[in-house]
């Protein structure tokens, strides 16, 4: 009976997501002449891309980028959500719209606008900073470039995280706080002992979605830093894109993407297991 109810969803997912992923993995095992399959290659494509010593660096960098970005976004979103929770409904809605705005813009346009306002040499951001005596060129320095990339990712996904966390905070029964106040717990203790534990599910959801989004998004790094300077901001999704679209190594690109796909799925389950989250 239940199977009938879930069948349409499963069918759509099968056709749109699962079979294409399977086909991609199959395709990564083929020998390609540009895009055209001309034979079977086995793991040759994988060997080729992973024999590149830079690949290890890219993976490590990607991991660092994702961990820092997700942690920062969660922390910032928690602060904003707690703040929004204390506002009256009208004000909260207004501020909420401002916070959510960057998230509802398409990534390419958003990243372009972010760069156009904060980073480009003739941007208002750089100009205003120079008025304050700060002559920064954010993308010239490798470390600052990574910081910029992280800030773009933060800016782009903050709204989403705030929404989910705010919903979680609002769902916590007010009585919990009342009795805590009676017991003499201060605000900090209440946050630590009630808010955080009660936010487990929203935090899990947000972490999973943010991690996946940052591990797969090509547009933001492509538009903001292009991987440079040097290889300072070369992260996995960009490397996959460039393998296929700049170097025209489609088989290598698909091999990398397949590995990323399997890693992503594995990561989600590992994370859910870690959070002891169950259906």
């Amino acid at each position: 009976m239940g199977l009938v109810y879930v069948a349409p969803v499963m069918l759509v997912l099968l056709v749109v997501l699962i079979l294409p992923a399977g086909f991609a993995i199959y395709y990564s095992l083929l020998k390609l002449q540009s895009v055209r399959p001309v034979g079977f290659a086995g793991l040759e494509n994988y060997q080729r891309v992973f024999s590149d010593p830079e690949m290890v660096e890219v993976l490590v960098r990607t991991l660092g980028f994702a961990v820092v970005t997700v942690a920062l976004t969660l922390a910032a979103a928690l602060v904003v959500a707690v703040f929004l929770d204390r506002l009256t409904t009208g004000r909260a809605t207004a501020v909420q719209i401002l916070v959510v705005l960057p998230w509802v813009i398409s990534t390419i346009v958003g990243a372009l606008l972010f760069r156009w306002f904060f980073v480009a040499d003739i941007s208002p951001g750089v100009y205003l900073a120079s008025l304050l005596g700060l002559h920064i060129k954010p993308l010239t320095d490798p470390t600052l470039a990574m910081v910029t990339l992280i800030l773009v990712a933060l800016w782009r996904t903050l709204g989403f995280a705030v929404l989910i966390l705010l919903a979680g905070i609002k769902a916590i029964p007010a009585e919990y706080y009342e009795s805590a106040t009676v017991d003499g717990a201060n605000t900090g203790q209440q946050f630590r002992l009630i808010t955080l534990p009660m936010l487990k599910t929203p935090l899990v959801i947000t972490t999973v979605v943010l991690t996946m989004s940052n591990l797969n998004n090509v547009e933001a790094p492509l538009v903001t830093t292009g991987g440079g300077p040097g290889d300072a901001t070369q992260i996995l999704p960009l490397a996959i894109y460039q393998q296929a679209f700049t170097h025209f190594d489609f088989s290598g690109g698909v091999a990398l993407a397949s590995v990323a796909l399997v890693l992503n799925v594995g990561l989600v389950f590992a994370y859910l297991r870690l959070a002891r989250w169950s259906v």
Binding site: M10, L17, L19, P20, Y27, G253, V254, L261, N264
Partner: peptide, 22 residues
């Protein structure tokens, strides 16, 4: 499977070529 589809949907962008053929 539905949960596993979240990363699949987000990773679809880098699989443009095989997706196109499919």
């Amino acid at each position: 499977v539905i949960v596993a589809c979240i990363p699949l949907s987000m990773g679809a962008a880098v699989l443009v070529i095989p997706n196109y053929l499919y």
